[in-house]
């Protein structure tokens, strides 16, 4: 997509985190939310990140999503060192390369389902005519065409999360970050949403899911476990991968 793509790394590594640290001050105590993280993610990966509360998995997601900036270390996204980007450039990267799905949907309450999905396109300044086509396709893909004119409070939880997914993928990002995407949903709606996310992954999007839910976490091909800001396990479809990466 972008010219900075290193031709050698193409298809090899999409994301490369090296010696990444993020520390928060809680009162006068330093909390190491990310403690020397090394991680490579290939395009098309399906990764779950699990761990107890406070293990740093949300911070990892925020850093990967360019919402947070690490204190030290490097984060290469498709060959670009994102730690050197300005806030405006990070915003553009988020818009063009990254989709977010949140536990509590974060839909804008005054906008209809269609307008919520359209929002990233509006922010990107895309012409109304082009927007309409893209949004219509997404609505059809997610089975929301009938509900397009409804406001979020007129939709069920599952429908809201589907709208949120539509909004996350409307800019056709390469990376989809989901933070407890089924956390607020009943079992059936949760399964529907997971099915949609996995379908998107099969179509080539890189999917990273942060969750407490063991069943959901086990569905991923690659499972990362975090404790106290460190990656303690990195399994690849049942095989325990080398932990050298995370403890280098």
């Amino acid at each position: 997509m972008r010219a900075q793509l290193s031709p050698l790394r193409k298809q090899q590594t999409m994301i490369k985190l090296s010696q990444l640290c993020r520390t928060f001050m809680l009162g006068d105590q330093a909390v190491h939310a990310l403690n020397n993280i090394n991680l490579n993610i290939s395009p098309g990966d399906y990764i779950s990140v699990m761990g107890p509360s406070g293990s740093g998995k949300s911070t990892l997601l925020n850093v990967l999503g360019l919402l947070d900036v690490p204190d030290s270390g490097h984060y290469l996204l498709q060959g670009t060192d994102t730690t050197l980007l300005s806030e405006t450039e990070r915003a553009r990267y988020r818009r063009e390369h990254i989709g977010f799905v949140f536990q509590s949907y974060h839909l804008v309450p005054r906008l209809t389902a269609r307008e919520n999905i359209e929002l990233p396109l509006v922010l990107a300044g895309i012409a109304p005519h082009d927007r309409q086509k893209k949004v219509a396709a997404i609505l059809a893909q997610l089975g929301l065409t009938e509900r397009a004119g409804h406001l979020p409070n007129q939709l069920s939880g599952g429908q809201r999360q589907r709208v949120a997914i539509g909004r996350a993928i409307v800019m056709q990002p390469r990376l989809l970050l989901a933070d407890e995407p089924t956390g607020n949903l009943d079992t059936q709606s949760g399964l529907d949403v997971v099915a949609i996310l996995e379908q998107l992954n099969q179509q080539g999007i890189t999917l990273l899911v942060v969750t407490h839910d063991n069943a959901l976490g086990q569905r991923a091909r690659r499972r990362i476990r975090m404790v106290d800001g460190r990656i303690v396990a990195d399994e690849l479809a049942g095989i325990i991968a080398s932990e050298a990466d995370s403890h280098a």
């Binding site: 405006t88 553009r92 988020r94």
Partner: peptide
């Protein structure tokens, strides 16, 4: 949210 989906400051 707007920031997350790509709105700059």
């Amino acid at each position: 949210l707007l920031k997350a989906i790509g709105a700059a400051d």
